[in-house]
Design a binder for these strands. Structure first.
Lengths: 343, 343
DNA sequence: AATAAAAATTTACGCGCGATAACTTTTACT
DNA sequence: AGTAAAAGTTATCGCGCGTAAATTTTTATT
């Protein structure tokens, strides 16, 4: 990088010996100028310290290079990881991602979308809160900005949805537990924040019926996004009552399972597949911490990479093809069973 | 909110019956206009749908309302939580925070600062990676932008530092373990990413010496930010060798401890203060997940609230007082001991 | 070498707002 | 009521760049 500070594009164009409009074209899309001019501009970039003014750039541009990434709850490492993955892909493609978290708050979620509008984003990758989301407002937003939903679907909203196949998750965990032990009870929140939870419950019931067993759903109380604590308290109640038909529990998601295992430990209930274990616990998500629970959690893993890759690719296709595809694609990726000690 | 879209401030000013420069003043600082005009503008805001164009706003402003928040590793819920706290405080004060994560990568850290410069931020709240950070580049950045460092200090860099008092953490955990059992060995990474780790080790040695015991530091190998895995592997080695003088372990931080406890469980080493326990494990940080380890982790808690409050306040003081205070304040907040089952 | 197509240049305008200066109106206070 | 200070108004400029049209130069094709 250079040492001489260059004030504006006019000056930089003069220094590089190229006209300003061409330099402008270069910054908008380096591939749109001839290789020889590109080389001259890049040589000048090495020599002088110049970056176009972002604010002036975006003011009159019809399509900015800004991408909004919105996740429901960033303190959940699952979303932090997927956000990171998506963020990197955007940067690699020459876009400028900005990360937002709704922090579990539906009003904040709408405020974020409002603020995003004024950034004139080329597109938005959006994992909604789910049940609590203000769908009318979100729909309004999606009419103005090309949006790809991920992780959590809202029917008909956004240009596309990319997520994981909940049936694939639950069918594998149920099948595994049944085959290697007993058919599990299903442990979940009574009023889940996320629509995936409902699909998982339905998949559980479907699978159990298909395999010829009676489904048994345990629903615990609790609101908000403190899933571990909800799981822990719920587990204490469940373990006290002891009215589950088998010694197998399938948690709707890993964060509930983390709480569940913590309660088991507190009560001295040994979990795992050893002979002296009284309970087997499995779950879904392959949360970054699920490897470190006690015992380590058997779970079904999201295909992080493919979900984020396909989300980003879908959005870029939308952006580059002038948007509005007509049909709303819903892409689901299958899960991968991760066997650990808990079941 | 209104329904009629208003194109620009000119138009909005006409609709509200106020001159454009006054409306401009209002958006810059609502308190700077008379209460009666403020009411008229706000009435018009209710009636019409108008928001100033961010890009045009920031283009010519000497001081924007942008605040950069940079954390080293967002997939660590500790940083996610503190970032959220800081973010909210910025918004409440009328600023526009943008969140960035260095993802443990020193080059990315510098890229983020570079990108931040072009956002002309009024100020930056910055938790550096630490040892791996490119200090020369960071120092250069801090010369251009008022920056408050938090969590992790870099000597002399930035206008102020706000963090936790590592001696307060370690002295309490060491004192507690010693008083209620035996003096602990200290478990840490050989080449810690973070300068706090060095301060904690020093504090441990100081405390042990003061109490009349021989310090015993266990250093495990491992690079990067996968602390849990490093802790787990390190613990397996340590537990195999069994050459620790007492049955008490103090981990440098909670994420290492999470891995340590996971290894203990895997080996059937019972941790806690019950009679049948062979090991006590404590740690420092009060990580959001430390409540759910098995057993729940005894640790020393950061004062999240005060650290983030004071960081933000320091920065705003810098910004509003025209910056450059002359002396670089370092503020450390004490820890609070959290007793749980592990020690 | 002739011709068409592609790329770069020149020129000019405008985006939406911040900032300033000179002037007028409203408020606060003796 | 009189006066100074505070706040609002009108007018105008400029920020740094995108964009478009008309023109010229370069490259590719036969």
């Amino acid at each position: 990088m250079g040492d001489v500070k260059v004030k504006n594009m006019e000056e930089f164009a003069a220094l590089s010996g190229i006209s300003r409009p061409t330099v402008s074209k270069y910054f908008n899309d380096p591939g749109s100028v001839r290789a020889s001019t590109r080389a001259r501009i890049e040589a000048a970039l090495e020599k002088y310290d110049y970056r176009p003014n972002i604010f002036a750039m975006n003011q009159n541009r019809k399509l900015t290079k800004n991408i909004g990434i919105v996740v429901p709850y960033l303190a959940d490492p699952f979303f932090a990881e997927i956000a990171r993955n998506i963020e990197q892909r955007c940067i690699d493609s020459g876009y400028r991602p900005t990360l937002f978290s709704s922090h579990g708050n539906p009003e904040l979620e709408i405020e974020i979308l409002d603020a995003l509008q004024s950034l004139k984003p080329a597109g938005v990758l959006f994992a909604p809160l789910g049940r609590a989301s203000n769908k009318a407002e979100i729909e309004k937003f999606c009419k103005n900005v090309p949006t790809v939903l991920f992780d959590s679907n809202l029917d008909g909203i956004g240009e596309a949805f990319v997520g994981s196949d909940n049936f694939s998750f639950v069918s594998q965990t149920v099948e595994y537990m049944t085959r290697t032990g007993a058919p599990p009870s299903f442990f979940e929140m009574r009023t889940p924040a996320n629509p995936n939870a409902n699909k998982r419950r339905a998949a559980y019931i479907e699978m159990m019926t298909r395999l010829g067993f009676e489904p048994h759903v345990i629903q615990v109380d609790g609101e908000g996004w403190a899933f571990e604590e909800i799981g822990r308290r719920g587990a204490h109640k469940v373990l006290e009552d002891k009215n589950h038909p088998t010694d197998a529990i399938l948690c709707s998601n890993d964060r509930l399972a983390i709480g569940f295992l913590s309660a088991c430990y507190e009560r001295g209930v040994k979990v795992g597949r050893d002979a002296d274990c009284v309970l087997r616990v499995a779950s879904n998500d392959d949360h970054p911490f699920s490897k470190f629970t006690c015992p380590a959690l058997t779970t079904a893993a999201h295909d992080y990479d493919r979900v984020s890759e396909h989300s980003v690719d879908s959005l870029f296709e939308l952006i580059e093809n002038g948007k509005r595809p007509g049909t709303r694609a819903e892409t689901l990726f299958p899960a991968r069973l991760i066997l650990r000690a808990s079941a």
